[in-house]
Design a protein around this nucleic acid. Sequence first.
DNA 1: AAGAGTCCGGGACGCTTGACCTGATAACTG
DNA 2: CAGTTATCAGGTCAAGCGTCCCGGACTCTT
Lengths: 213, 213
Amino acid sequence: MARMPSAERRRQLTEAAIRAMARDGVAKTTTRAIAAEAGVSLSVFHYCFDSKQALVESVITTITDHYVTLVKEALRPRATLEDTVRAGFQAYWDHVRTHPDEHMLTYELTQYALRQPGFEHLARRQHEMYGEAYTHLIEQLRAGRDLRLRVPVTVLARYLAAMTDGLTLNYLVLGDEAAWTGVLDTVTAHIASLVMADGPDAAPGPPPDRAPG
Amino acid sequence: MARMPSAERRRQLTEAAIRAMARDGVAKTTTRAIAAEAGVSLSVFHYCFDSKQALVESVITTITDHYVTLVKEALRPRATLEDTVRAGFQAYWDHVRTHPDEHMLTYELTQYALRQPGFEHLARRQHEMYGEAYTHLIEQLRAGRDLRLRVPVTVLARYLAAMTDGLTLNYLVLGDEAAWTGVLDTVTAHIASLVMADGPDAAPGPPPDRAPG
DNA sequence: AAGAGTCCGGGACGCTTGACCTGATAACTG
DNA sequence: CAGTTATCAGGTCAAGCGTCCCGGACTCTT
């Protein structure tokens, strides 16, 4: 095999692990399977990583960062408000449809991290970064135009995060792409009504916010 | 140990497995752990179940049925429409808060089933039954009073299912109970606006449904 | 050219797992 | 009573797992 500095080899092994885990599941992905996927001998694995746990940690942080940039990219502001929301959802949804295995893997890794003592923080970090990405976008939108939020930013961010999580998971389990367009439209309309411009034609307040708690 | 017909012993082992899996995770729950949790010898396990897979199948169907009845119970129709939605969400959410491990387990089992060849149908069945439970409730509500649905029943049911899934998962990962009340209120208001009585004071149509696709 | 540091490969160790078996014993059933 | 059913302790087995070691090979520096 081609000789390679450890750092690069680590990256290669991490990506091989992601491929193998996405294809076969986290449980079935052994150190041998990862080494084979990367095309190196098993010894190289333990030369680069102190333990399997160390590699899994690398996998989780890598894939989390990957998806945060994905979300931020998908939710880039567009011409109009409605367009932004719609295009963002569409871009995200397209990615889910074309890469179901990768999304499945993120859910598996979340649970793996939650169960593995000392790894809980990675699961939390994963979802906190999603929330922060949404928050960032909302603030960005708000700075650009004159927006009136019907709900606090944190509430909206959490709502978006939970919504995408739930929709993705249900799609991964049930499949049936066509059935979800109606749901996506409903959600999009709702989001747009929660974040509405201070403009003229927007619908007047349907259900007024009620004090929480 | 007390003698017991096989059927009952099977139930006991299934419940022991659910306890052990909820506590330690699916991956760490071995046949020996299950037998110990049930207080029987390992031989009894293989006397009652042909294989571990057979037990897992029993676990999944049991827990699925358990949660479907839970959802149906939580979403029993109440006095007013708003009350029904609010009380339903509240009851469900209380259960999540008081039994986080059990809910976590359902997610783990879903993924286990999706990865295990020949078990995919169990994962699908699980989520289909949730959807049917929601559909059932909506139909029930519609029969009772004069309801005007802004979206098709199937869309609403899927939306509810995805919403609860996503909220639950995010709560399990992030914790922080207080932070979710605002999201729950927002969702409740939205649902109530989607299923509204043909009454007087309900808000006139904010964003009209646009044709999908 | 020589040495040091780095990378790679084959092989092996120790452990856990699911599955299976034996033989004996106790409890219900008819 | 005999016959069926359920339970137990104990051990065996092959497979698979993460981990580790050692010798060789490469690369860079001096």
